[in-house]
């Protein structure tokens, strides 16, 4: 009896191992829930086109799902992996569009060589998204001063009065807010060297 049980157990173990490896499912829905928003943002801002952005997001997940056997969690997060796939797709889409518009513009053939050096539109977008994340991580006071003074361009005196501090306090707060913003960015892996 024990022998048969052992064999049954072994069979179960082998079956479950096969599920874990070759049949291992990439958690498609979970990954979509966690990253689709960000990936769409990256694609939309890089390409400025909602339809193209949707295509990029869809293709990113489909590719990730198909090649999930190659994904190694020890080498990086799912997010890093998805972003790498999306960036390639965005660059391809941007190039394809450049080719189409040049062809439509009827430019001479020798000028087509320029297409090869179409810059990666995702670089600046990613920096911007990183900055948004960094701003979110600032303290309430620091976040607010940068938002009001820089982004909304409001006068120091007006903002100082609204917050209830002196204009000079608000000015020095701007300085400390920028200092901590730099620190947060560095913690996120950003560097202004090179």
């Amino acid at each position: 009896m024990t022998g048969a049980n052992t064999i049954r157990r072994l069979g179960r173990r082998l079956r479950s191992r096969r599920r874990d490896t070759s049949e291992g499912e990439f958690p498609l829905r979970a990954a979509y829930a966690d990253h689709a928003g960000e990936l769409f943002q990256l694609a939309f801002r890089s390409l400025g086109d909602q339809g193209l952005a949707e295509e990029v997001v869809q293709e990113t997940f489909v590719r990730a799902w198909r090649s999930s056997a190659r994904f190694d969690e020890r080498r990086g997060s799912v997010r890093t992996w998805l972003f790498a796939i999306a960036r390639n797709l965005i660059v391809d889409a941007a190039r394809a569009r450049a080719v189409r518009s040049r062809a439509a513009g009827g430019e001479r053939e020798e000028e087509w060589g320029v297409i090869g050096v179409t810059e990666d539109p995702t670089e600046k977008v990613l920096l911007g998204m990183q900055m948004e994340e960094a701003l979110k991580r600032l303290s309430e006071d620091h976040h607010r001063v940068i938002l009001e003074i820089y982004y909304r361009g409001r006068p120091y005196a007006e903002v100082a009065e609204e917050i209830g501090v002196s204009p000079s306090t608000l000015r020095s707060r701007t300085y400390y807010a920028l200092k901590s913003l730099r620190l947060v960015l560095e913690e996120m892996g950003w560097s202004d060297e090179s």
Binding site: K124, V125, L127, G128, M129, M131, E132, L135, I146, Y150, Y151, Y175, L178, K179, L181, R182, L185, D192
Partner: peptide, 12 residues
């Protein structure tokens, strides 16, 4: 040091 941070502000 501060400038390299403020240069990125318009991207956000």
């Amino acid at each position: 040091e501060l400038r390299s941070v403020t240069e990125l502000l318009p991207l956000a």
